[in-house]
Design a protein around this nucleic acid. Structure first.
Length: 832
RNA sequence: GGGCGUUUAGCUCAGUUGGUUAGAGCAUCUGCCUUACAAGCAGAGGGUCUGCGGUUCGAGUCCGUAAACGCCCACCA
């Protein structure tokens, strides 16, 4: 027997058992395959609410499909997360007084793997707490041998196809981590700064150019000043020279369209080694590229007396010096947006550097082409997110994939003098040195959906479970991940990586702010689980909003979900308590038929919305059906036929169905109740999902009980509003009179009286209530308000029904409905 | 600069392809310890659906436009 109150701790005991029985394993069901690969969490820390949402959604889908008989595989795994993890490990070592470079690459990687093992353990523990039905036999890590093989295969192949190349370009440099980054890893933030106007004297003249810049410290690398060839102010200066202040070097004034006459003063200093646009200008005009900043963000020898100063300190000192020397014309305050490293937070330095790139255009075009084919495209849910991917594919440019880090996939590239070798294995001959760099972490995650299934080997797993069916992730990583999986998959497997891509929103705090350490508004899902249970958290997260929109986390709602579960718990207690009653064989009562009909309708709708991934709708349908129909209406009516086998069977059948439909959302409590209800050790998670059965629809009973419930409710409202005493007199004329009397807890005790009766009707149900009238002014006021509303409604309907256009164009059903409604209202008006 | 999203009850959110009186939870008010559940039951109140214009017999829903808030992308000497 169940305890009096729901206790989530006592329900969260099934995970070991599910695991032990192999229920999570693929290959158990005979049906079609259904695959989800988990977005691998970074091994950098604890899972947050976003992970809980993301994985709960996947578990809901996979448990549903499993119960429907699909051969489901939900593949778990984790991401080494190159830079993110390396930062953490470096920090940890620093606390111990150890410097990464002193330790050396090999020892550092040992430490990183220890870190990974520790965090992987944590993550698995949290997955278990969430109740996720992952097939751990196939768990993968992005640095696993088979994934490394996939990475190398892809790198080598793309290189051979000319789609990976090495080049010297301006890249985004993180001076703290001292690595290159991709454009996606740069976040632009508004920064308060100055627009410095510097005097560049013109050679052979007493005039000067007013050159405006936000980055004066890069002036040591200036190799020209550009003006627009069409700019009348400066046209005649093209070809002349200016003197670079402090450096005292002559540099040319060039004409280039890059200089925008409308911006600043119309004169731009050209620093080809420190600005992507200037780099292009430099190429056009064959300018020298002078690097003036070191990899750590300090100034190098080209900065003369400023050498070794930090770039910001140099700026400050330099501006001061320029001012003293009379070169600073103006210093305008300016707010402009500046790139920052997504991971380390420091300002990005555009930096000339030799890196490896993926040539994106041909790969992106393939995606754009494929998205036109409705049979092979990636279907986004909600649809609008497809635009984000497509837009990215349209404007994308080459992807910088080399990182100056240690933690990650090392580039399969070897050098010997000027020779380059790219291949799966190290060249046999002596003298080859492998490239020190590792790949962007997203390079390996881009292969995740197929590499985890064994690719490049055409394994059994790959053949059976690829392409995957659904990928679930947040909109924030579409550019990083979804896009890249899509083009790599199309290029290497000729298939989309997943048929559906479910995009959910981010979880924010109650005020709509992002969770962040600095705000201290973080919520640990494990604390929530401890307080309210995994079932409550999962239900709340998956049913409380529509996909694609952000969720404002609200603990009160989790608490209210706990109440819902407690309600289910108690209803189940009631059913279980009565199941062994001595009961007689009987036909179904009208209320049995009613709930069975509602139950079938619910199965139909829930299944429909589950298949469309509209969990919000599933949630409200189940909530309403369980709380209102099953608990408040049916159980209350069933209390009067607990001696009938038909009712007991109905209670059990419907409750079983409810548990099954809830199970994907609330695995623990449904398992506990299911086993108790059916006196079994069998698991609900491998039971069959309810299937809609037309034959169990009783439309007459549905209508009859709907009317009855409305009738009872009307009488209750009337009683309450008129403060009718308990021993009131009522006369009921209805088919299910006994049931109604019991529900109203009244007696049909009409005796002679001279009171005026109040008639209440719903269809053919009729009641007359006799009571002492004592209308207060407030009552009269309300009555008058109701009367006015009724008149207004009648007026509206009459005008509608006299509108010839409406009568011609509206569907007949609606017109008839309006007519009968009007008549009813007119009748009601007479009673006022 | 380009694009997207949001705007509905005090709060948080639903609202399918336009069609009865726009829904839910929480909060509020009234009455109930009715033996599954007081974390509950039975009722009630609360919305000119951001503004304006249009299409339509009919608009929260479609179109146009304005505003507020948020996000993405690009640019930013």
């Amino acid at each position: 027997m169940l305890d009096k109150k729901y206790n989530h701790h006592e329900c969260e005991v099934h995970y070991e058992n599910w695991l032990k029985n192999g229920y999570f394993e693929c290959g158990k069901n005979k049906g079609k395959s259904f695959t989800i690969v988990i977005p691998p969490p970074n091994v950098t820390g604890k899972l947050h609410l976003g992970h809980a949402l993301d994985t709960a959604l996947q578990d809901v889908i996979i448990r549903f499909k499993r119960m429907q008989g699909f051969d489901t595989l939900w593949l778990p795994g984790m991401d080494h997360a190159a830079i993110a993890t390396e930062i953490k490990v470096v920090e940890k070592l620093k606390e111990q007084g150890i410097n990464k470079h002193d330790l050396g690459r090999e020892k550092f990687l040992e430490q990183a793997f220890l870190w990974k093992d520790e965090y992987a353990l944590n993550i698995r523990e949290q997955w278990a707490k969430l109740g996720l039905s992952l097939d751990y036999r196939h768990e993968r890590f992005t640095l696993d041998e088979n994934l490394s093989k996939a990475v190398k295969t892809v790198f080598v192949k793309l290189y051979e196809e000319g789609l990976i190349y090495q080049g010297e370009r301006i890249i985004n440099w993180d001076p703290l981590q001292q690595t290159a980054l991709s454009t996606e890893e740069v976040i632009y933030k508004d920064v308060e700064s100055y627009f410095y106007h510097i005097k560049y004297p013109i050679v052979g003249s007493d005039k000067y150019l007013d050159v405006a810049t936000t980055r004066p410290e890069t002036m040591f690398g200036d190799t020209a000043v550009a003006v627009n060839p069409k700019d009348k102010r400066y046209q005649d200066l093209i070809g002349k020279k200016v003197i670079l202040p402090i450096v005292n070097k002559e540099i040319p004034i060039i004409g280039d369209v890059h200089a925008d006459p409308k911006k600043g003063t119309g004169c731009v200093k050209i620093t080809p080694a420190h600005d992507p646009n200037d780099f292009e200008v430099g190429l056009r005009h064959n300018l020298e590229k002078i690097i003036v900043i070191n990899k750590d963000g300090t100034m190098n020898e080209n900065a003369l007396q400023y050498q070794n100063m930090d770039r910001f300190a140099c700026r400050e000192k330099l501006v001061k010096d320029l001012e003293e020397m009379g070169y600073l014309l103006k210093k305008e305050p300016l707010v402009h947006s500046v790139g920052h490293s997504e991971r380390s937070g420091v300002m990005i330095e555009p930096y000339l550097s030799k890196q490896w790139f993926v040539k994106m255009r041909p790969l992106a075009d393939k995606v754009l082409e494929n998205q036109k084919n409705k049979d092979t495209k990636v279907n986004f849910v909600p649809k609008r997110f497809e635009k984000i991917m497509n837009h990215w594919m349209e404007i994308t440019y080459d992807w910088c994939i080399s990182r100056q880090l240690w933690w990650g996939h090392r580039l399969p590239v070897w050098y010997k003098g000027d020779e380059i070798y790219v291949g799966m294995e190290e060249p046999k001959e002596d003298g080859w040195v492998q490239d020190e760099d590792v790949l962007d972490t997203w390079f390996s995650s881009a292969l995740w959906p197929f590499a985890t299934l064994g690719w490049p080997d055409i394994s059994e797993l790959y053949q059976k479970y690829f392409p995957t069916d659904v990928l679930v992730t947040g909109y924030d990583i579409i550019p990083f991940w979804v896009n890249r999986m899509t083009f790599q998959s199309l290029h290497f497997t000729n298939q989309r990586p997943f048929k559906y891509c479910l995009i959910h929103g981010l979880i924010r705090d109650k005020q709509g702010r992002k969770f962040s350490k600095s705000l201290g508004n973080g919520v640990d899902p494990m604390d929530v689980i401890d307080k309210y249970g995994a079932d409550a958290l999962r239900w709340y997260l998956t049913t409380s909003t529509t996909l694609g929109t952000d969720i404002r986390y609200d603990e009160e709602k989790v608490a209210s979900t706990w109440n819902f579960i407690n309600k289910i718990w108690n209803a189940s207690r009631f059913v279980i308590m009565n199941l062994d009653n001595e009961a007689v064989n009987s036909d179904l009562t009208v209320s049995d038929k009613w709930i069975l009909t509602r139950y079938e309708e619910t199965i139909k709708n829930v299944t429909k919305f589950m298949e469309r991934f509209e969990f919000q709708n599933v949630g409200s349908i189940l909530y309403q059906f369980i709380w209102e129909d099953f608990c408040d209406s049916y159980i209350e009516m069933a209390k009067f036929s607990l001696d009938k086998k038909a009712t007991l069977n109905t209670l059990q059948e419907v409750l079983n169905g409810i548990l099954k439909m809830l199970h994907p959302f609330m695995p623990y409590v449904t398992e506990t109740i299911y086993q108790e209800l059916n006196h079994t050790k069998d698991s609900i998670m491998v039971s069959d999902y309810p299937v809609y059965d037309k034959k169990k629809i009783f439309n007459d009973s549905l209508e009859e009980v709907n009317n009855l419930l409305e009738f009872v409710s009307k009488i209750r409202t009337f009683k309450q509003e008129n403060q009718i005493p308990k021993n009131y007199q009522i006369n009921i004329d209805a088919k299910e009179k006994d049931l109604i009397i019991k529900m109203l807890k009244c007696q049909d005790n009409l005796v002679e009286n001279n009171l005026e009766g109040k008639i209440i009707t719903v269809k053919d149900l009729k009641a007359v209530i006799y009571y002492e009238k004592h209308e207060s002014p407030k009552d009269l006021e309300r009555k008058e308000k109701e009367r006015e509303q009724l008149i207004a409604s009648i007026k509206k309907r009459e005008s509608l029904l006299s509108n010839q256009n409406f009568l011609n164009k509206a569907p007949k059903e609606l017109i008839d409905n309006e007519k009968s409604k009007l008549e009813e209202e007119k009748r009601r008006l007479e009673t006022y």
